[in-house]
Design a protein around this nucleic acid. Structure first.
Lengths: 205, 205
DNA sequence: CAAGCAATCTACTCACGCGTAAAATTTTCG
DNA sequence: CGAAAATTTTACGCGTGAGTAGATTGCTTG
C-alpha cells in the first residue's frame, strides 16, 4: 500500500477511481463468463463476487449486454493492437506474421481474449452483435493482410490467403477452450510451440 | 412417396416410425441451436418449427438438456466412427491420419458436428456434461493415437503429440463457426484444402 | 448551510421459458 | 366393440434473473 494521498481526490483521481471500479466489474464478469458461461452467470453472481449489489453494476455499465460487449471489445482491441505492433516490426513478412501469430495466441489465452472466442454472436443483442462482428472482421482482415504481405515479399510461398487465415486462426483460437492457466505449460510456451507447428506448414521448404 | 404399405404397421415399423419422429425433433433442434444458439432457442420454438406442441417433444426426449446431449452425442458418434474407419484403412500411418482429418473436418461442418463445437460444456447439466466430456476425450485420444501411429511407422517425423492434436483439431473445428453451406466452397473442398495446409506442416520434407 | 450530484443499497416488477398435470384424441388388439 | 396403451394437446405452475424505482448516504460547491 502506498502512503496516504490527500484525502481530497482531484477530478483526475476521481475519474480514475471510477474507471478502476468499472474495470474491476469487467474483470470479475469476464472471469465468471469464462468459467461458467455467459448465460449461467447472473449479474447478481458477479455483484456477489465483488461484494457489491447488482444496481451498482448497472451504475457503471448499462446492462448485461453492454458488459459482454465491453469484454469482447477489450479482447479484440488487444488483438488489433497486436496486429499494429507486428506490422511496425522489422524483418521479413514471414517474421512479422509469426510475431503476430504468437501474440494472437497469447491473447486468446487471456481473460478477455478467451471471452472473444467463447462468445457466440447470438449471445449479443442485434446492435452489439454488429459491432462484435465488425471488430472480428477487422482482425481477420489484419491477419489476411499480414499473410498477403508475406507472400508479396516472397518470404512465404503463395497460398489461398483466406483459407490460410481461417486455418491459422482456428488453430490458435482453440486454446481458449482447453488451456489451463494452472497447468504445466505457460500460455507463452503453448503459443510458441503451436506457431512452430503451423509455421512449418507455410514457410518455404 | 412410396406405394401404400399395409395400413397395419408391424412392430418393427412402429418402432421405426417413433424413431423417425424422435430424429426429426433432434434435427430441427440442432439446426435451430446452430442458427440462434442453444439459449436463444426455446423448445416452444422447436415445436413450432415442426408444427407440433412442446409436450410432444417431452414425450420423445425427457427435457431440453437431453435434447442437447443427444445432439452432441450424435455428432461425436460420427467422429468416433470416422476414427474407426480410418484406422481400418490401408496405407501408411500418415495416410490414415490424413483420411481421418478430412472426415473430421467434414463432420464439423455438418449439423450435429457443428453443434458439438459450438456447445460449451457449461450449457449442459452436470451429468450430461460428464458424458459430453468423456466423448470428447475419446476422439481426442483417437486423434492422438493416429498421430502417434504415424510417428511410430515413420511416415511423419516425431512431434509433441498432444500439442499437434490440439493444433490440428483447433484448425479443423473452426469451420463450424464460419463455414456457410450456401457459400461458394463445399464443405468437402474446405476440408481437403485445410488438411493440405496442415499436412504440409507435419509431413516429412 | 442548502442544493445538487455521485454512489450505493433494498426491495420490487415482470417476462420468459422450462417442465407438468390432466384431458382429449388416436391407435392397437383381445 | 371396448378396454388399454400410445400420442398429442391445452392450460397452467413456478423459478429465475434482467432490469428499475426510490431511498440513503456522503461529498462537493455555490
Amino acid at each position: 500500500m502506498e502512503a496516504a494521498q490527500s484525502p481530497f481526490p482531484s477530478a483526475q483521481e476521481k475519474r480514475a477511481a471510477r474507471e478502476a471500479k468499472r474495470a474491476a466489474v469487467l474483470r470479475a464478469a469476464v472471469q465468471m463468463f469464462n468459467e461458467r458461461g455467459f448465460h449461467q452467470t447472473s449479474l447478481d453472481d458477479v455483484a456477489a463476487r465483488l461484494g457489491i449489489s447488482k444496481p451498482t453494476i448497472y451504475h457503471y455499465l448499462g446492462n448485461k449486454d453492454q458488459v459482454l460487449l465491453e469484454c469482447v471489445s477489450i479482447g479484440l482491441g488487444q488483438l488489433i493492437e497486436a496486429a499494429e505492433q507486428s506490422r511496425a516490426r522489422e524483418g521479413s513478412g514471414a517474421d512479422r506474421l509469426i510475431a503476430f501469430l504468437v501474440r494472437y495466441a497469447e491473447v486468446n489465452m487471456d481473460d478477455f481474449g478467451r471471452c472473444v472466442i467463447r462468445t457466440g454472436d447470438e449471445a449479443l443483442a442485434p446492435e452489439s452483435r454488429k459491432r462484435f462482428r465488425a471488430l472480428k472482421r477487422q482482425i481477420d482482415s489484419d491477419m489476411r493482410g499480414l499473410i498477403a504481405a508475406a507472400v508479396e515479399d516472397g518470404s512465404i510461398p503463395p497460398c489461398d490467403v483466406r483459407l490460410m487465415a481461417f486455418t491459422l486462426a482456428g488453430a490458435l483460437n482453440w486454446p481458449a477452450r482447453w488451456h489451463d492457466h494452472g497447468g504445466a505449460l505457460s500460455s507463452e510456451a503453448v503459443a510458441r510451440q503451436m506457431v512452430d507447428i503451423l509455421a512449418r506448414g507455410f514457410l518455404p521448404r
